[in-house]
């Protein structure tokens, strides 16, 4: 990673032509698709993008149209990191043999939470262990939205999905969200970070940092899905913001294992009174509607308790400099 941090203004970014183009077929108010646009705004030169099967892969590549202005490859669902491995290997050897003249070619792999935490975890772990030079971007909308809102291991406690429906006996998903960034940090990666598109400047900066790493980098981007969350499409960015303000999804980065809160989360750590209750984030989302009943009130309490606990642990990790 370069020591000189990339400086940019909003106007620089706004004026940079989109590399993920308009005319895609994402739902109105889709935050993951904003993530794609913003990630592409951070590219620094020749770049190849590869995607796992999923909403964000479908919406931009329906033949005979493409929304990708960059070279782009999709092969299957569980293997975005293996695609990146193959592309990285090809670039390395072809540069050595003089078949590629570019000084570098950045590789970005993009997958949803299903393609990262569940079916894609093996390929991701393997590619990171092998040290391929790529940035893996997880857009986390907390479920299998492309196939009609099924539970993933990233779906949070209490959320109702079509395979963890809120019933009369079981109140939605019972299990915790899989701590994917902790798993990636355990791989001793040079760069692991979290982001969410409301804080677009932070997101773009982190993408660029991830690209500058020589080796694998991992970026976990929290991205509200109005269709799957049964929320108002106009409020996708508001939920993105609320996820940080309630500490449901704090944003931070870890460079060589040293973890540091990013400004919006740091502000809350310095002024804890600014931390909003999780209710502010949960209400308005249809997937949590069943929790706002007397018999399920304890689940909201549990979400608040576990959110606070994770936040405290994160603060300790940041303070101690440990991963």
């Amino acid at each position: 990673m370069t020591t000189q941090e990339w400086k940019f203004t909003a106007k620089d970014i706004a004026a940079k032509p989109d590399l993920f183009l308009s005319g895609h077929r994402a739902c109105a108010g889709c935050a993951p698709v904003s993530v794609l646009r913003l990630v592409m705004k951070a590219t620094r030169g020749p770049t190849i993008v590869t995607q796992a099967t999923g909403c964000m892969e479908i919406v931009g590549s329906i033949y005979p149209y493409t929304s990708w202005a960059l070279p782009w490859l999709h092969t299957a669902f569980e293997n975005a990191a293996a695609n990146a491995s193959g592309i990285d290997a090809a670039i390395k050897i072809m540069r050595k043999k003089g078949k590629i003249k570019d000084e570098y070619v950045d590789v970005i792999a993009i997958a949803g939470d299903g393609g990262t935490l569940d079916i894609g975890l093996q390929a991701l772990s393997g590619a990171v262990e092998r040290g391929h030079d790529f940035l893996f971007v997880l857009y986390d909308n907390e479920g299998y939205m492309n196939t009609g809102i099924q539970r993933s291991s990233s779906t949070p406690i209490g959320a109702s999905t079509t395979t963890s429906p809120a019933g009369s006996v079981i109140p939605g998903k019972l299990e915790k969200k899989k701590p994917i960034t902790e798993i990636m940090l355990a791989h001793e990666m040079e760069y692991v970070a979290t982001a969410t598109p409301y804080y677009w400047k932070d997101l773009i900066t982190k993408v660029r940092k991830g690209l500058e790493v020589e080796g694998p980098a991992f970026l976990h981007v929290f991205a509200p899905c109005p269709r799957g969350w049964r929320s108002d499409p106009a409020k996708s960015m508001e939920y993105s913001k609320l996820s940080v303000e309630t500490c449901v999804f704090p944003i931070w980065e870890a460079v060589n294992g040293k973890r540091q809160l990013s400004t919006p989360s740091k502000v809350i750590s310095l002024a804890p009174q600014k931390k909003k209750p999780v209710k502010a984030y949960l209400e308005g989302q249809g997937r949590f509607r069943h929790l706002f009943t007397p018999q399920n009130a304890h689940i909201i309490e549990e979400i608040q308790r576990s959110t606070d606990e994770r936040w405290e642990k994160l603060l300790q990790k940041c303070a101690s400099g440990a991963t």
Partner: peptide
């Protein structure tokens, strides 16, 4: 920055913003 459609363009030479209704899906973000 936040329009999911890339339907709001910034025109640096005119320092203006332009909404392209041809792509706007009306999400209201």
């Amino acid at each position: 920055m936040l329009c999911p459609e890339g339907a709001i363009a910034f025109l640096p030479e005119k320092n203006k913003i332009q909404i392209d209704l041809g792509f706007c899906k009306g999400c209201g973000i």
